[in-house]
Design a protein around this nucleic acid. Structure first.
Lengths: 151, 151
DNA sequence: CCTATACTTGTAATGGTTCTAAGTTAGAAA
DNA sequence: TTTCTAACTTAGAACCATTACAAGTATAGG
């Protein structure tokens, strides 16, 4: 679920940053906005390209720095691509990804379906894993690997 | 579940390779054996180090080539590390991973627990996702992200 | 308005992975 | 067994995503 997808005004994002102990800068605002309005899961370089097209005046190093800050503060997550470069997502909730074996591409499962699957995970077994292994689960990341019917 | 974990004789692995249309070489045997008897999920370089210690006489390029061949043939899977380097696993079955947020380390959930969770996934919802999205699911990869109680 | 601290930036360095081109080998066929 | 060739191995170069660095700049608190 894309949190605040409809709340990307400067003031709203500034508030969000303050809540997460992040300084608000022109560059960070641009990166966050670009990331949050994406429905794919962009790489750092894709974001940089997009921002450069927008003449947002930002360096690639800053894109990386900002993404790291967002991830560390909990405003984004870094998804391993399996391929060459990392992908980012401005969502932090549990959600499902679909990975196409053929292309390696990654996309979200529609929220309603994904949520139903996650809500129906056997909670008692998760609890058992936690107690048995002395592990505290923060997030359940599920990836459905397969291929589109067309292929 | 580590398939053939007890069946790593030369003959057994050779048969396995033939079944998967892979030529059997000294180097591939060494890599497969090193991978299959690991309980962690080694990186290419960790395997290379281990094999070098064993004086197996193998180059790093071959480790990479072999891992790629194993993955392509279905005898291993590549796990995105989220961090810097990829990790490999000589198992192809659905299974669960635990990722420690602190260290980024990745390990298996014991088979019995993992299997119970996977067996209790709501199958009807998975089917619905398949039909709704025109996607055919080969594998369900679940990662439990969290931290050990000690930390 | 001033200041301290944190952020930004271009560039260099790093490090995992892939490429290349030359040598070697597995395994099929005779 | 011998021969043959496609496939494999290898060292080193190349590649490219990411991080480190050091100098300049901007934010937010006082």
């Amino acid at each position: 679920m894309h949190q605040q997808a409809h709340e990307l005004t400067e003031a709203a994002v500034q508030t969000l940053f303050v809540q997460h102990h992040l300084r608000f800068t022109r560059q960070r605002y641009a990166v966050y906005r670009a990331l949050a309005c994406e429905d794919i899961h962009p790489t750092a370089d894709q974001l940089y390209q997009k921002l450069t097209d927008n003449k947002s005046g930002i360096s690639l190093a800053t894109v990386y720095n900002t993404l790291e800050a967002l991830v560390k503060s909990g405003l984004a997550q870094k998804l391993a691509d399996g391929g060459t470069s990392a992908r980012y997502d401005a969502s932090v909730d549990d959600h499902l990804h679909l990975r196409d074996r053929a292309t390696g591409s990654l996309m979200d499962v529609p929220v309603n379906l994904g949520k139903r699957l996650l809500d129906n995970l056997p909670d008692n077994i998760l609890k058992e894993i936690e107690s048995e292994l002395g592990f505290s689960i923060n997030r359940v990341q599920i990836e459905l690997v397969g291929e589109y019917a067309g292929n």
